[in-house]
């Protein structure tokens, strides 16, 4: 009984600000925008047939397919090497973690100076004998997103991996060393297999964090960026301005289903471990 008393104030807020309105959105996804007439799956069809939606969904998919494996692998390498390092370990860890705390808006000018076609990165490219890359006005804009995402999340994922690494009992390593196993063998035979659950968790969390890269995209390029960095959140914002609530409702439900499916997979992975 007491448990419910402690929970109730927060739960009521959650019901009022998230659960009930989401249920309302599910209902609206089957209704017309203006007259609230029942239209079945028409909104969903309209969403799938919408060219902007396909482009945004494609970009989002391409973005996650490139970024997440890259981020997960890089941060693992970083976590493992940092763990073996004796010199300056804490200092380096702090340096990698700083971007987590840096508000996106406070480095927006820096990003603009770096990625302008006459900017600092192109200065470096020219010095190395390359040609100027039109970062913001060509397909290269996509890589501005990739770089922003990696920059922001590398330290975050590194901490997640370190937590996973800390969970492996040291006795296993000691036993393996006694049996004459080298560093590399320890890594492939002990470290990697023991990190399987962490891998699932970190992949899912990285995927969910990838939605936040919209911030950087919007800050450097505004509401209508180059089409290679046009993401679902841009599209929803634009639909929002046009008051196409019927479409946003259907798209939000689809989006929620994808996230739900991922959480379900994660849960299965956790349960399988036990």
């Amino acid at each position: 009984m007491w448990g419910i008393c402690f929970l109730l104030p927060d739960l009521l807020g959650v019901i009022c600000f998230a659960l009930l309105p989401f249920a309302q959105v599910v209902i609206r996804s089957f209704q017309g925008a203006v007259n609230h007439k029942w239209v079945g799956f028409d909104n969903y069809k309209a969403v799938f047939q919408n060219a902007a939606f396909r482009m945004a969904a494609g970009n989002t998919l391409r973005f996650t397919a490139i970024c997440i494996p890259l981020l997960v692998a890089l941060s693992l390498v970083l976590a493992v090497t940092l763990q073996h390092l004796r010199l300056g370990k804490d200092l380096l860890k702090s340096a990698f973690l700083i971007p987590v705390a840096v508000p996106a808006a406070s480095v927006v000018l820096v990003w603009k100076v770096l990625f302008h076609s006459n900017g600092l990165i192109n200065g470096l490219v020219l010095k190395l004998g390359g040609e100027k890359i039109p970062w913001m006005t060509s397909g290269a804009a996509f890589f501005v997103l990739v770089i922003s995402y990696l920059w922001k999340n590398l330290g975050y994922d590194m901490i997640l991996w370190m937590a996973g690494l800390a969970g492996i009992p040291t006795e296993i390593y000691e036993a393996a060393k006694v049996d004459g196993a080298g560093e590399w063998k320890c890594f492939t035979k002990i470290t990697l297999p023991n990190l399987k659950t962490s891998l699932y968790t970190i992949s899912v969390l990285s995927f969910l964090n990838s939605f936040k890269v919209f911030r950087e995209a919007w800050l450097v390029a505004g509401d209508y960026p180059h089409q290679s960095m046009y993401l679902l959140q841009h599209l929803y914002n634009n639909w929002f301005r046009d008051l196409s609530f019927d479409r946003i409702a259907a798209a939000a439900v689809l989006n929620a289903l994808v996230v739900l499916a991922l959480i379900f997979l994660l849960k299965r992975a956790w349960d399988a471990e036990e």
Partner: peptide, 24 residues
């Protein structure tokens, strides 16, 4: 079930909750 709902909501991105929040 409440714990599960809390976990799911924690992981939902803003683009899913934007319209529900706007409506309320």
């Amino acid at each position: 079930i409440i714990s599960a709902i809390y976990l799911v909501l924690m992981l939902m991105p803003f683009q899913v909750l934007m319209l529900p929040e706007y409506l309320v």
